[in-house]
Amino acid sequence: MDFSLSEEQELLAASTRSLAADLFGESVARQVLDGDRARADKGWSNLQEAGLASLLVAEEHGGGGGSLLDACVVTTELYSALAPVPYLTSAVAVPLLAAGSGEQGTPVLTALAEGATYGLFVGADLSWPATGPDAVCLDWAPGRDGLAVGPDTLELGPAEAGPGVDPLHPLGRGTGAGSVSWPAAGLPEASSRALAGVRVAAAAALTGCLAGAAQLAWDYIATREQYGKPIAAFQAVRHLAADLLVDLETCRSVSLGAAWQVENEPIEDAARVAAVAKSWCGEAAVRSIETSIQLLGGIGVTWESTAHLYLRTAHQLAASFGDTRSLLRRVGADFISARGGHSDGSS
């Protein structure tokens, strides 16, 4: 039993962190907010050149052959640095789903390794999978195709600008998912596992949002003075600050552990733990970012504060690929039907 990250993974985290600090951060996010994506797009090209955007594409297709855990480590760092790039979609979800859809996914994988960028179609309610013509394209950009994937279909299609609360990760309104269909139950294992992987990566992204917002709050309370001392001296402030760390550490534990489980354990366990990771991190991130805003006081609710950017991204992620409550209902129903009949607790 070993929960630790490998030396390479620690290094990957550290190098992504410093790369993201150079390429992104608040000023780039602000430019995007003002409609200028030049530096954000440049940063994305840099990530592609560094091989991070094709990390999950198998080596045989020209990618980095990384693990889901590797990708989650990178995802957390990028979201913590407010990187306005389509990492979760183009670099994680698309390769996972394309690889999970068999032969037909190969051209997409090869294109990714060669530098293509895709959005991802999901259902209009942001749930997974995309069904019908009203699909929404996550990480939309003008001229960028979105991928729509079913167990035996895979389509690329265009989208136009759609409404969305998160300017760093814009939504498109698409018509490209028209012919994709998913069975109500009994998904092929490869598709289920790919979907579980996407959920865990979303959990890792949420963990990054939480980490970034919590750091804002921790830094602020140590220096902001009221009543003649730093507000971090007040217990009511300290306890909220402590709650942020409890949420952050548990999010790290569940997103990292689930990333490993999804790639290495039987599909029922993979699906369950992915749903748990996604719901846990979705709820904890929103809760903790709200707490961070509380700790920032008035400045926290202004347009100028970075806090609302984390909050916007976290809400969009929390609602995507199955929201907290629907995932909890699913794991609850599975548990009841599997275990409820054995009230002595035997499985």
Partner: peptide, 29 residues
Amino acid sequence: VSNVEAVGRVLGHLEVLRLHSMRRLSDRA
């Protein structure tokens, strides 16, 4: 539905606690 969700929520806590504990245990080991 509220019971199903409540059970799911407890199970979620248990899974998180399990992974978090494994992380601690691994550190200790």
